[in-house]
């Protein structure tokens, strides 16, 4: 049985009247890539801050590596690496000096530290920029520097708090690949994000939270299995009449139909050939359509179905 790296039991955190964490519990095992998914303000960062003893909490218990976490547990802290949402580096220090500084907070031996710093720079692929000052780096490179600062001391538990916000696709892929590699090397990862695609791609265990509460937990497939929707058939069609929509609603396995902006979304529960049935209906009714395709449920659908709202703010 794998060791438990993080264990949070019935955590309560209040900001005056607002309950940021409401009897929140989670368990993360060694070697997992644990996704903490939720909309902005759901309590993801508060959970992380409580875990790291950066925030005091009102009730509950937090155990890291089997020990109760307190601000003075330096031994536990030395096993943790944090990659914050905002780039946390010094503008006045070069790329190398920044990584060396943060690594030096953990590694006292100069030789070993140099080796670790070089490895971290190689890992995030910014060795060529080691003499640059952060102001001279692009957004993507800055994010990679931020990661290098968090992982240089080779922590056993790495917390990534929305590391890909405002990052170009190329850098985003590089970051995600890097996280996978760190996990392969043995690090346990906590990944918080409101980008469901990333969490789905990366995490082998996902916890969805909202308003400080856990609303679902499991693997991506387990979460999708919790909801009614198994397939959505989308048809691009113009001038669809109401009676046609009513007819489609009566098709087998269809439980919800929406028609907006010439896009017809048919939600199905169960069934293997739903797209064929819909296409046949259009053929038989002599209705023209531009395009028809099928979509499998996403974590957003899971969130939408459980909470009745979108996981991600419309951008």
């Amino acid at each position: 049985m794998p060791n438990t790296v993080v264990e949070i039991n019935n955590l309560v955190k209040r900001y005056k009247e607002l309950i940021a964490l409401d009897n929140f519990s989670l368990k993360i095992n060694e070697g997992e890539v644990f996704g903490l998914l939720g909309p902005n303000g759901s309590g993801k960062t508060t959970t992380i801050n409580c875990m790291l003893s950066l925030l005091a909490y009102d009730k509950g218990e937090i155990k890291l590596f089997g020990e109760k976490m307190t601000p003075n547990k330096r031994e536990i802290k030395s096993k943790i690496g944090i990659v914050s949402q905002n780039v946390a580096v010094f503008d006045e220090l070069t790329v190398y000096e920044n990584v060396e500084y943060f690594c030096g907070l953990y590694i006292k031996d100069k030789k070993l530290r140099k080796q670790y710093v070089d490895e971290a720079l190689e890992f995030v692929d910014i060795m060529d920029f080691k003499k640059f000052y952060p102001k001279k780096l692009s957004g993507g490179l800055l994010r990679r520097l931020n990661i290098a600062c968090g992982i240089a001391h080779k922590p056993e538990l790495i917390i990534f708090d929305e590391p890909t916000v405002a990052v170009d696709p190329q850098s985003r892929n590089k970051i995600l690949e890097g996280i996978e590699e760190l996990n392969k090397k043995g690090a346990t990862i906590i990944y918080t994000s409101h980008y469901m695609e990333e969490v789905e791609q990366l995490c082998n265990h996902i916890l969805i939270m909202d308003k400080g509460k856990k609303i679902a937990e499991g693997t991506s497939d387990e979460l999708k299995g919790m909801i009614k929707n198994t397939e959505s058939v989308v048809v691009n069609v113009r001038h669809l009449k109401d009676n046609a929509i009513e007819d489609i609603k009566k098709l087998h396995h269809v439980y919800d139909v929406k028609y907006m902006n010439n896009i017809l979304t048919i939600k199905c529960s169960g069934g293997k050939h739903n797209i064929t049935h819909v296409a046949e209906y259009f053929e038989q009714s002599n209705l023209d359509y531009d395009r028809i395709y099928s979509e499998l449920p996403t974590l957003n659908d899971v969130f939408l179905e459980i909470t009745g709202k979108e996981l991600r703010d419309k951008e």
């Binding site: 801050n49 790291l52 003893s53 950066l54 601000p71 003075n72 330096r74 031994e75 802290k77 030395s78 943790i80 944090i82 914050s84 949402q85 905002n86 780039v87 946390a88 580096v89 010094f90 503008d91 006045e92 943060f102 907070l105 953990y106 600062c149 968090g150």
Partner: peptide
């Protein structure tokens, strides 16, 4: 610079004491 929230947090969560 050392008091910038994220830098401060990153330093505090390290193995050196506050």
């Amino acid at each position: 610079r050392f008091n910038v929230k994220d830098v401060k947090d990153r330093t505090i969560v390290s193995s050196i004491s506050t």
